Deep mutational scan, measured.
Amino acid sequence: GKMTGIVKWFNADKGFAFITPDDGSKDVFVHFSAIQNDGYKSLDEGQKVSFTIESGAKGPAAGNVTSL
Results as ranks from 00 to 15, higher is better:
Gly1Asn: 10
Gly1Cys: 15
Gly1Thr: 12
Gly1Pro: 09
Gly1Arg: 14
Lys2Val: 12
Lys2Gln: 11
Lys2Cys: 14
Lys2Asp: 04
Met3Ile: 07
Met3Tyr: 07
Met3Ala: 05
Met3Pro: 02
Met3Gln: 07
Met3Lys: 08
Met3Thr: 05
Thr4Trp: 09
Thr4Ile: 05
Thr4Arg: 05
Thr4Phe: 09
Thr4His: 05
Thr4Lys: 04
Thr4Met: 06
Gly5Leu: 01
Ile6Cys: 06
Ile6Thr: 12
Ile6Trp: 06
Ile6Ser: 04
Ile6Pro: 00
Ile6Asn: 03
Val7Arg: 00
Val7Asp: 00
Val7Phe: 04
Lys8His: 06
Trp9Glu: 03
Trp9Arg: 03
Trp9Cys: 15
Trp9Asn: 03
Trp9Thr: 03
Trp9Pro: 00
Trp9Met: 04
Phe10Glu: 01
Phe10Ala: 14
Phe10Asp: 00
Asn11Thr: 06
Asn11Val: 04
Asn11His: 06
Asn11Cys: 15
Asn11Ile: 05
Ala12Ser: 09
Ala12Gly: 05
Ala12Val: 12
Ala12Arg: 14
Ala12Lys: 13
Ala12Thr: 08
Ala12Ile: 13
Ala12Glu: 06
Asp13His: 09
Asp13Val: 12
Asp13Gln: 12
Asp13Gly: 08
Asp13Met: 09
Lys14Gln: 05
Lys14Asp: 05
Lys14Arg: 09
Lys14Asn: 04
Lys14Glu: 06
Lys14Val: 05
Gly15Ile: 03
Gly15Phe: 06
Gly15Ser: 07
Gly15Met: 12
Phe16Gln: 03
Phe16Gly: 04
Phe16Lys: 01
Phe16Leu: 14
Phe16Glu: 04
Phe16Trp: 07
Ala17Val: 10
Ala17Gly: 15
Phe18Thr: 04
Phe18Trp: 14
Ile19Val: 07
Ile19Trp: 00
Ile19Lys: 00
Ile19Pro: 00
Ile19Ala: 00
Ile19Asn: 00
Ile19His: 00
Ile19Tyr: 00
Thr20Leu: 05
Thr20Met: 08
Thr20Gln: 10
Thr20Glu: 05
Thr20Asn: 02
Pro21Gly: 01
Pro21Ala: 02
Pro21Lys: 01
Asp22Pro: 01
Asp22Gln: 04
Asp22Arg: 02
Asp22Gly: 03
Asp23Met: 02
Asp23Ala: 02
Asp23Ser: 03
Asp23Ile: 02
Asp23Val: 04
Asp23Leu: 02
Gly24Lys: 03
Gly24Ile: 01
Gly24Glu: 02
Gly24His: 03
Ser25Glu: 04
Ser25Leu: 03
Ser25His: 04
Ser25Met: 03
Ser25Arg: 04
Lys26Gly: 11
Lys26Glu: 09
Lys26Trp: 05
Lys26Ser: 10
Lys26Leu: 07
Lys26Pro: 13
Lys26Gln: 11
Lys26Ala: 12
Lys26Val: 10
Asp27Pro: 08
Asp27Phe: 03
Asp27His: 04
Asp27Val: 06
Val28Gly: 00
Val28Trp: 04
Phe29Pro: 02
Phe29Gln: 05
Phe29Lys: 07
Phe29Leu: 14
Phe29Gly: 02
Val30Thr: 01
Val30Tyr: 05
Val30Leu: 06
Val30Ala: 03
Val30Gly: 00
Val30Gln: 00
His31Ser: 13
His31Phe: 13
His31Asn: 14
Phe32Glu: 04
Phe32Gly: 02
Phe32Gln: 04
Ser33Asn: 08
Ser33Trp: 10
Ala34Arg: 10
Ala34Trp: 13
Ala34Thr: 08
Ala34Ser: 12
Ala34Val: 09
Ala34Lys: 13
Ile35Asp: 03
Ile35Ala: 02
Ile35Gln: 02
Ile35Pro: 02
Ile35His: 02
Gln36His: 11
Gln36Trp: 10
Gln36Glu: 10
Gln36Gly: 07
Asn37Thr: 12
Asn37Val: 12
Asn37Phe: 12
Asn37Cys: 15
Asn37Gln: 11
Asp38Pro: 11
Asp38Gly: 11
Asp38Gln: 11
Asp38Cys: 15
Gly39Val: 08
Gly39Asn: 08
Gly39Gln: 08
Tyr40Val: 09
Lys41Asp: 10
Lys41Ile: 13
Lys41Ala: 09
Ser42Trp: 13
Ser42Ile: 10
Ser42His: 11
Ser42Tyr: 13
Ser42Asp: 09
Leu43Ile: 09
Asp44Gln: 14
Asp44Gly: 13
Asp44Phe: 15
Asp44Pro: 05
Glu45Tyr: 13
Glu45Asp: 05
Glu45Met: 12
Gly46Trp: 03
Gly46Asn: 04
Gly46Gln: 02
Gly46His: 03
Gln47Pro: 01
Gln47Thr: 10
Gln47Ala: 09
Gln47Arg: 07
Gln47Trp: 06
Lys48His: 13
Lys48Gly: 03
Lys48Thr: 07
Lys48Phe: 08
Lys48Asp: 02
Lys48Val: 09
Lys48Tyr: 10
Lys48Cys: 13
Val49Lys: 00
Val49Asn: 00
Val49Gly: 00
Val49Asp: 00
Ser50Asp: 04
Ser50Met: 10
Ser50Phe: 10
Phe51Gln: 00
Phe51Gly: 00
Phe51Met: 01
Phe51Asn: 00
Phe51Ser: 00
Phe51His: 00
Phe51Val: 02
Thr52Tyr: 08
Thr52Ala: 07
Thr52Phe: 10
Thr52Ser: 09
Thr52Pro: 03
Thr52Met: 11
Thr52Ile: 12
Ile53Thr: 07
Ile53Pro: 05
Ile53His: 06
Ile53Lys: 05
Ile53Arg: 07
Ile53Val: 08
Ile53Ser: 05
Glu54Asp: 09
Glu54Phe: 05
Glu54Trp: 06
Glu54Ala: 04
Glu54Thr: 06
Ser55Lys: 10
Ser55Asn: 09
Ser55Asp: 14
Ser55Leu: 10
Ser55Thr: 10
Ser55Gln: 12
Ser55Val: 09
Gly56Gln: 10
Gly56Met: 08
Gly56Phe: 10
Gly56Arg: 05
Gly56His: 12
Ala57Gln: 10
Ala57Gly: 11
Ala57Asn: 13
Ala57Glu: 14
Ala57Val: 14
Ala57Thr: 13
Ala57Cys: 15
Lys58Ser: 15
Lys58Leu: 14
Lys58Met: 14
Lys58Glu: 15
Lys58Asn: 14
Lys58Tyr: 14
Gly59Glu: 14
Gly59His: 08
Gly59Cys: 15
Gly59Tyr: 10
Gly59Met: 07
Gly59Lys: 09
Gly59Pro: 13
Pro60Ala: 06
Pro60Met: 05
Pro60Ile: 05
Pro60Thr: 10
Pro60Asp: 14
Ala61Met: 11
Ala61Thr: 13
Ala61Val: 14
Ala61Arg: 08
Ala61Gly: 12
Ala61Tyr: 14
Ala61His: 10
Ala62His: 09
Ala62Phe: 07
Ala62Thr: 10
Ala62Asn: 10
Ala62Ser: 11
Ala62Arg: 04
Gly63Met: 07
Gly63Ala: 14
Gly63His: 09
Gly63Thr: 13
Gly63Gln: 11
Asn64Tyr: 05
Asn64Glu: 11
Asn64Leu: 12
Asn64Cys: 15
Asn64Met: 09
Val65Leu: 11
Val65Tyr: 01
Val65Asp: 15
Val65Thr: 13
Val65Gly: 14
Thr66Gln: 12
Thr66Tyr: 01
Thr66Leu: 03
Thr66Ser: 07
Thr66Trp: 00
Thr66Cys: 15
Ser67Pro: 05
Ser67Ile: 15
Ser67Ala: 06
Leu68Met: 10
Leu68Ala: 15
Leu68Lys: 15
Leu68Ser: 15
